[in-house]
Design a protein around this nucleic acid. Structure first.
Length: 428
RNA sequence: GUGGCUGUAGCUCAAUCGGUUAGAGCGCUGGACUGUGGCUCCAGAGGUUGCGGGUUCGAUUCCCGUCAGCCACCCCA
């Protein structure tokens, strides 16, 4: 063993890169359908870009170091600060709403687990400069269409959505103070995985009264728009706070995507900067981590020192998605298959095969041949192993006839084809 | 960063109570079938049993450390 890639980093063997490329191609295709433009930024950024608003504790999770120019730098853990800078630089000139996407490789220095490496690729789609809930619905629809494009239905994946404004109003109505809200959000976020007693204990430590704690669990248990609207309608200050959630949901219903969507107030999202609708996509078996998460972060661009524009976005990583695809055995057509493998019967046929191969390649046909002359059986073996659709056999008899024998390697049938036809239209 | 479980060939696994030369299937390479692949047969390559130390006459097996993977915590891209 010559050693391996660093912990949490991946080598991509051809089959694995084929899967990655398939994922990227699907992402780009859906982004194109939704009219998003692709952008990118540097993988290495100044450390302050991530510490200035997130606090120093995040440095623990960052892949950071001091470079030769004595600068504190970090491999990007997320794309949003870069996006904020780029948008800020041209905010005046860009027509709103801005619809951009990117597929950055992101880095995190933490112990790896399944679905969680130190590096991954993540589709980011963001809409900037639009406060309407239709923007939220637009992004959620894109998420759903991506998994649909991979062949998943509502029985396999579900998108769960909530709204920070609704959570805020309900929690305050239950007697929680602003200072207690982060603890409450954390408890709600974990309400499905962690026993209630343990969460109650943590809320007590945060200073929550017993009635408030019951309120937190009541809020976390709310499912479905009717129940949410009823809860909101019953509290003071609840008027209108669920309008955006209702409108976005109605838009998704209008698009015909209702079967994929659940209103679920246990969805919070960990990041503190979310200000409105938040959502996550899960496999229904719930054996994996969230496939995707996102939401509205209206104050973030300004906080990052940029322009004050409403914004929302989501991230979808290639690791969990890849596991989901593998788990459901979603196959795909491996690209780059050979159109033909040329076979030289005798040593005298090698030069004609080279000539034919190059002429075919000039015409865009994917062609390979044996790099050392061998018996026909060996050449055909290699042709099959390479996944060639056809073998083109050139021997003394065929050369005499200005033709070649084309063998269909799947069907096992053969036909004699004139060289002129091989070079014009037989393959493409 | 903390705790638990695991580690034998490229892959899936075997090896009696601690017993001497660590095996098998698949895959890979070569050969037989001599102008046609998948089948069959023959042969071969490939291992510091993750690594280091300890106990023992003897360690894949028992103990310690370390590294890596998995799981939980932390955290959530």
């Amino acid at each position: 063993m010559q050693g391996q890639a660093l912990p949490g980093f991946r080598d991509f063997f051809p089959e694995e890169l084929a899967l990655r490329n398939h994922i990227f191609a699907t992402w780009r295709e859906v982004a194109r359908r939704y009219g998003f433009q692709e952008y990118d930024g540097p993988p290495l950024e100044p450390l302050e870009l991530y510490t200035q608003k997130s606090g120093d504790e995040i440095v623990q999770q960052l892949y950071s170091f001091r470079d030769r120019g004595d600068r504190e730098v970090a491999l990007r853990p997320e794309m949003t600060p870069t996006l904020a800078r780029m948008v800020g630089a041209r905010a005046q000139a860009l027509k709103k709403p801005i619809r951009w996407f990117s597929i950055p490789q992101l880095f995190r220095y933490e112990r790896q687990q399944r679905g969680r490496l130190r590096e991954h690729f993540q589709l980011n789609m963001d809409i900037i400069g639009e406060a309407s809930p239709l923007a939220d619905a637009e992004l959620i629809a894109a998420v759903i269409d991506i998994v649909r494009a991979f062949g998943f239905g509502p029985g396999e994946v579900q998108l769960r959505m909530s709204d920070r404004r609704v959570l805020h109003a309900l929690l305050v109505a239950h007697g929680l103070t602003e200072a207690q809200l982060p603890a409450a959000y954390a408890a709600i976020d974990k309400s499905e995985r962690v026993p209630r007693e343990a969460l109650a204990e943590q809320l007590e430590k945060a200073g929550c009264a017993a009635r408030a704690i019951d309120g937190v669990f009541a809020v976390a248990a709310l499912r479905g728009l009717p129940d949410v609207l009823r809860a909101v309608g019953a509290v003071p200050g609840g008027r209108g706070v669920a309008d955006a959630l209702s409108e976005a949901h109605a838009a998704l219903v209008a698009m015909g995507l209702a079967a994929f969507v659940q209103i679920d107030l246990s969805i919070v999202r960990g990041l503190a900067y979310y200000t409105g609708i938040v959502f996550e996509l899960f496999d229904t078996a719930k054996t994996l981590r969230a496939v995707c998460g996102g939401g509205r972060y209206d104050g973030l661009l300004k906080a990052l020192g940029g322009v004050d524009l409403p914004a929302l976005g989501f991230g979808m990583g290639d690791v969990v998605l890849g596991e989901l695809l593998r788990e459901h055995k979603r196959s795909f057509e491996a690209p780059g298959q050979l159109d033909a493998f040329l076979v030289a019967v005798s040593g005298d046929d090698v030069a004609p095969v080279l000539k034919l191969a190059h002429e075919l390649r000039d015409r865009g046909v994917a062609v390979e041949y044996g790099l050392r002359h061998a018996v026909i059986r060996k050449q055909l073996e290699l042709a099959v192993a390479r996944g060639a659709a056809r073998a083109v056999i050139v021997g003394p008899e065929e050369r005499q006839a200005q033709a070649a024998v084309v063998r269909d390697l799947k069907a096992g049938t053969e036909e004699k084809v004139p060289l002129t036809r091989l070079l014009s239209g037989f393959f493409r």
